[in-house]
Amino acid sequence: MALIHYVECNTVHAANFVVDVPAGAHWLLVVTKTPALFWVHGALKLYPAHSVVLYQPQQKVYYQACAGPFVNDWIRFESDEPYITESPLPPGIPFALSDPDFCQKLLELIVSEHHFSRDCKASSIDYLLRALFNKLWESYFQDNITPQYYKLLKLRTVIQNNPGEYWTVATMADYLAISPGYLQSIYKKTFGISCMEDVINSRIRMAKEYLIHNAQSIAEVAARCGYQNVEHFCRQFKQITGHTPGNFQKQAKLGASL
């Protein structure tokens, strides 16, 4: 289990903000929302927004605002859990966070759990911290994180949360204010799948759910998943699943009844 001493989200500091602790007493995790200067290998170095750094107990901590107010999340805590004490994360060295929005949600939940004395407070915080450190490990071993990556990730999240919208390469390109050709190139390079393939896969995933667990007709499912043409929906569904929507629905219901 972990003992949290203090945790804050979206804390805004003045432009002259400085943290200078020669030897910190506890673990400290800092996530930046704006650029900041960190003391690394004997010198101050500038790191962009969405950087994260983990300080070990007794380690020197020094960072400061630069070029305006500094905004960050941070947790000061104690723990003897191996997923923290034996973490591969480099102590005191910032690295880019791969999914800032996901981590923000986890940190907000940790803040909520920390401030209230609920029955399952300790175990809830432990599970949330484990999920957060899983994401930190993923981030540390990912090497293509750029400002452009964050914009693409937001677009991909919107697509997967709203697959039934009228998505075209042009509308997705407009979302990022870039050309359709450039979007197709960088999207495939970043995620290993084309933007339209992502849309189609998201639609078929949603269609499976509705075919199995709802009483809607195939035409209604097709419309809900963003298809204006039922035949087109059936063709794409079979290409991806190997079954027509009707056969898929029948087999799913047969399996549920056995």
Rank of each mutant, 00 (worst) to 15 (best):
1 M>T: 09
4 I>V: 05
5 H>S: 00
6 Y>D: 10
7 V>I: 15
9 C>H: 01
11 T>K: 01
15 A>T: 13
18 V>P: 05
21 V>I: 15
22 P>Q: 03
23 A>N: 08
25 A>D: 09
26 H>T: 13
29 L>G: 02
30 V>W: 08
31 V>D: 09
31 V>R: 15
34 T>Y: 07
34 T>V: 00
34 T>L: 01
35 P>C: 06
35 P>E: 00
37 L>W: 03
40 V>A: 09
44 L>A: 14
48 P>S: 11
52 V>T: 11
52 V>P: 09
54 L>N: 00
56 Q>D: 02
60 K>S: 02
63 Y>M: 08
69 P>V: 05
70 F>Y: 15
72 N>Y: 10
73 D>F: 03
77 F>I: 07
84 I>F: 01
90 P>N: 04
91 P>H: 07
91 P>N: 05
92 G>A: 09
93 I>Y: 02
95 F>H: 03
97 L>G: 11
98 S>N: 14
99 D>H: 11
100 P>A: 05
101 D>V: 14
107 L>E: 08
108 E>S: 06
109 L>F: 11
110 I>Y: 05
111 V>R: 01
114 H>W: 04
115 H>I: 10
115 H>A: 13
115 H>L: 15
116 F>R: 06
119 D>H: 15
125 I>K: 07
126 D>N: 14
130 R>Y: 10
131 A>W: 03
141 F>I: 10
141 F>M: 00
142 Q>N: 12
147 P>L: 06
153 L>Q: 06
154 K>S: 13
157 T>Q: 12
160 Q>W: 04
160 Q>D: 04
161 N>C: 05
162 N>S: 13
166 Y>L: 13
169 V>C: 14
170 A>G: 09
170 A>P: 01
170 A>W: 12
171 T>R: 12
176 L>Q: 04
178 I>H: 03
178 I>R: 06
180 P>D: 06
181 G>L: 03
185 S>C: 13
185 S>E: 14
187 Y>C: 01
188 K>E: 13
189 K>V: 10
189 K>C: 03
192 G>T: 02
193 I>T: 12
194 S>R: 03
198 D>S: 13
202 S>I: 03
206 M>P: 04
209 E>Y: 15
210 Y>W: 10
211 L>G: 02
212 I>Y: 02
214 N>L: 14
221 V>W: 05
224 R>K: 11
226 G>T: 04
227 Y>V: 07
232 H>A: 13
235 R>T: 12
235 R>Q: 12
236 Q>E: 15
238 K>P: 02
244 T>Q: 00
245 P>H: 00
247 N>S: 11
249 Q>Y: 00
250 K>T: 15
253 K>I: 10
254 L>S: 09
254 L>I: 14
258 L>K: 15
